[in-house]
Each structure stands twice: as C-alpha cells, then as structure tokens.
C-alpha cells in the first residue's frame, strides 16, 4: 500500500452513469490486477474503494458507476483536480493456477478490473474469453477495449438490446473454457460460481470502513474462517467461498 496524491487528467462518461477517470501519479504499488484504490473525497469521512481498471507508467484508470454520494462527487470532478489515494490495496487476481483458456465473467461495472487482468493474460500469451453482462445496451462499456487487447468478447444484456439476451451465465453456457475469473454483484458471482464447472477466482464488493484490514467492517465468512474482503480479498478462490442464505 502507498498513500499518494494523484491528478485527474480525464473524467468522461463511458456508459449510462459509468465514468472513466484517468489519474496521473505513482502507480508502483499496484502489483496485481483486481486490486483497488481508496479515495479521500472532500466532505466525506470515509474513503471510497474503487477497483483498478488499468495501471501503467504513472497512469491510473478507474471505471466507476455513480451509486451514491462519493461516486456522484467523483463524477463532477474535472481534469487538474488533485485527489489523495491509497493504492495497491487488496490481493488482486493471481495469474498462477490458470491454464488453458480462461473466461473472464464481468457483471456491470465489475468488468472494469477484468480489463487489467485480460491485459496481463495477453502479455503471458493467453487469449481469454470475456463475457460481459449488462442491463441494456446503454450500460455496455469497454467491449471494444477488451477486443483490442485480443480477448474474445461476448456481450450479454438482460433486456436483449445488445448481444446475447440474458445474464452472463446464459452467455457462458455454450462456451468452452478451463478457468473462470469473475467480478460483479454478488448474485451474479453466485450464479457463475454455481454454473461453472472449472476452478476460478471471484472478486467481491463490500461496504468498507478502512480498506486496508484494520476495522473488520467488511468481513465475510469463508471455509477457512472469517476473512476481510479488503485485505484477504477482494479475490477469493472458488473453493474458499461461503454464500449467505
């Protein structure tokens, strides 16, 4: 983890209520795809955890959805604005253990951290499948960016307005893959977890206090006992996960 000041260089909408913010600063603490940053925002007491979409050479890209006061405040910020971030938080996805053809399953804005994962896989000579699910065509983002990396992209929309009609799991049904990486809302993660026959890694969202393992605010139960989403996660192995209810 590092604490540092970043400067916004770009903050533009990429889909309905979804923005891409690019920041300039020291990205050296970002060591794995699937990690997140924790952003101090004016007048809000707690930082806001946002997953890293891309990080390279002092350029940090976040793709976030406006869901509350923090992200709405972020959406109003223009280039030149400085923000204080904690970077390199969370374990992130591991590229080890993935052989053959991995499938990246993204639900909504959960597709964002899968972008840096796809990039890293392609750098290793692995061409992933990317199945990205959204509510409708206006919510779709980064389909072209994933394709430009060399991923084989399938889009699913719940209302059928673009790509396969249905959920991520519907679009996954006919595909052949050897490993799953998933990020998205918990019902989507659970559906992927239940329907996929392969091993995999699943990245969870949580309401956090600190974001770096101190407060136990984001703990969830696992087969190995209580684990903090922010510090022990946000990525958990398929076999570790315990679902509520």
């Amino acid at each position: 983890m590092e604490k540092g000041v970043f400067t916004i260089t770009e903050n533009v909408p990429v889909a309905a209520g979804v923005y891409r913010m690019v920041l300039a600063g020291d990205t050296s603490a970002v060591t794995a795809p699937g990690q997140f940053v924790d952003i101090r925002l004016p007048d809000l007491y707690l930082r806001r955890p946002i997953s890293v979409c891309d990080a390279a050479d002092g350029r940090l890209t976040l793709v976030y959805k406006t869901v509350g006061r923090g992200t709405e405040r972020m959406a109003d910020m223009g280039p030149g604005r400085e923000l204080e971030l904690l970077t390199g938080l969370g374990n992130g996805f591991s590229l080890d253990g993935c052989s053959g053809r991995p499938l990246l399953a993204g639900g909504g804005v959960g597709a964002a951290p899968l972008y840096l994962l796809a990039k890293r896989l392609v750098q290793r000579g692995v061409r992933p499948l990317a199945v990205l699910g959204f509510n409708g065509a206006s919510d779709v983002f980064y389909a072209d960016e994933f394709a430009a990396l060399g991923a084989d992209v399938t889009i699913a929309t719940a209302d059928g307005s673009r790509g396969v009609k249905g959920f991520v799991t519907d679009a996954m049904a006919g595909l052949s893959y050897s490993y799953v990486y998933a990020c998205g809302p918990e019902p989507m993660l659970r559906a992927v977890w239940e329907s996929s026959a392969t091993d995999g890694q699943f990245s969870f969202e949580a309401r956090m206090g600190c974001g770096f393992g101190a407060c136990m605010g984001c703990t969830r139960q696992t087969v190995n006992g209580p684990r903090r989403v922010c510090k022990d996660g946000p990525v958990f192995l398929k076999g570790e996960i315990v679902w509520d209810g």
Binding site: Y45, L46, A206, R207, M216, G217, T219, P226
Partner: peptide, 20 residues
C-alpha cells in the same frame, strides 16, 4: 466471535458508525 452480519459500516457527517 464472527461478529455481526453485513453491512457493518455506515457514514455520517464528521464520522462513521460501526457494528462489527
């Protein structure tokens, strides 16, 4: 002790609530 179910954290002006 596992503690309480989620969510455990909330925010307010000038502070936070926890129910860990």
């Amino acid at each position: 002790r596992f503690g309480n179910p989620q969510p455990r954290i909330a925010e307010c002006a000038g502070g936070m609530l926890n129910a860990v």
